[in-house]
Simulated assay, not measured.
Amino acid sequence: MRKLVPALAGLFALVLSAPASAWWEYGHQTVASIAWLSVRPETRARISELLRQEKLLDTPTCPAKTIEQASVWPDCVKPLGDRFSFAYSWHYQNTEICRPFSLKADCKDGNCVASQIDRNARLLADTTVPARERVMALAFLVHFVGDLAQPMHAAGHNGDRGGNDVKVNYGVVPSNLHSIWDGYLAERAFSTPPKDAAGILAQSTPAERARLAAGTTEDWSREGWELARRYAYGSILQDPCAVPAQQPTSMSEQTIRSLVPIVRRQALAGGLRLARLLDDALGPRHLAPGQKPPKSPVPPKPAG
């Protein structure tokens, strides 16, 4: 009986660790807060200026007055039906983990999260776009960069809808692979000291932050695809390409602890990448993804 008590206590702790909110809330807000703390002061001012116009969205049940509120706005408006149904497929891309990576094949007509990050960054950078569209583009951009930072929004296997169809117990809590990464792991990772955005940022070095912020949406998509294969599917299957058993597997406390640094790193990466995109789009040059800043004119050589 004495040996059973610690085991039961560990399982009970896992049940208590079930999040009050999933990645779509806590995770997105953490990524947004990291970006807010990382952007230039003038970018912060322009974000605030745009969000002061959030009433143009005409979604009173889904406010976007702060960057944290804006980060969950695209999920909040999903129940509004036909008004925003066009954006449903923009939140993910189910790139097959057991085929060579090919974003182009899995992002036809731009209906995937990577393409929509670039599209909304372009809209945000274009000062000729109506204010309502730029406010919406800001909310979508903040949200979609957060989505892409979560590996199960970047990949899937055998049509399992990004792990939604893979039954996995989080300790003793019945769940699925997508929800564990969306919610249970996010809550555990972001509440682990030093917690939240400030704590996650404090654990990183300037060199690491510069490295994580670099790259393109295709680079970030490939990274998420690799992480999904190695750490998400790899944490429950010896062979990530094997067909999961019909009976749910259980994710142990040891596995959960090993994945916490991965999830924290992804939130950091998402926040820093978002900060870079916002600094570019709202900076004096209003740069869109892939657009190079104009070259400074070369001063003429002095005569003689």
Rank of each mutant, 00 (worst) to 15 (best):
A213Q: 07
T205M: 05
R230D: 12
A214V: 09
R257F: 05
A228K: 03
T255Y: 10
Y231I: 03
P248E: 11
G224K: 09
T217C: 09
A228T: 08
Q247M: 09
P206N: 09
T217W: 04
P244D: 09
A245P: 12
Q203V: 05
T249S: 12
Q254L: 13
A245L: 15
P240M: 07
T249Y: 00
D219G: 02
D219K: 01
D219Q: 03
P244Q: 12
S252M: 11
D219W: 01
E218R: 14
E223N: 02
W220P: 05
R211T: 06
Q203S: 14
Q254P: 03
Y233K: 07
R222I: 13
W225S: 01
D219M: 03
S258Y: 11
E253P: 00
E223V: 04
R257T: 08
R209T: 08
Y233P: 00
L212T: 04
T217E: 13
G234K: 08
R222N: 10
Q203R: 13
L227N: 04
P244W: 10
A232L: 13
A245F: 13
S258L: 14
E226R: 03
V243E: 15
E218A: 14
R257D: 10
T217L: 02
D219P: 05
A242W: 02
R229T: 07
I256E: 03
L227W: 08
T205L: 09
P248Q: 08
T216P: 11
E223K: 05
A232M: 14
T249I: 02
Q254I: 14
M251P: 00
S204D: 06
R230V: 13
P240T: 07
I236C: 01
E208L: 12
W225V: 01
E226H: 00
A207Y: 00
E223I: 04
T217P: 01
S258P: 10
P240K: 08
G215E: 06
W225H: 12
E223F: 08
C241Q: 10
G215I: 12
E253G: 00
S235D: 13
G215D: 07
Q203L: 12
G234A: 09
Q203A: 15
R230I: 06
V243G: 01
A245Q: 15
A210W: 02
M251Q: 09
D219V: 01
R211K: 07
L212C: 02
G224I: 07
A210M: 04
A214C: 10
V243K: 15
S250D: 07
T205Q: 12
R209F: 09
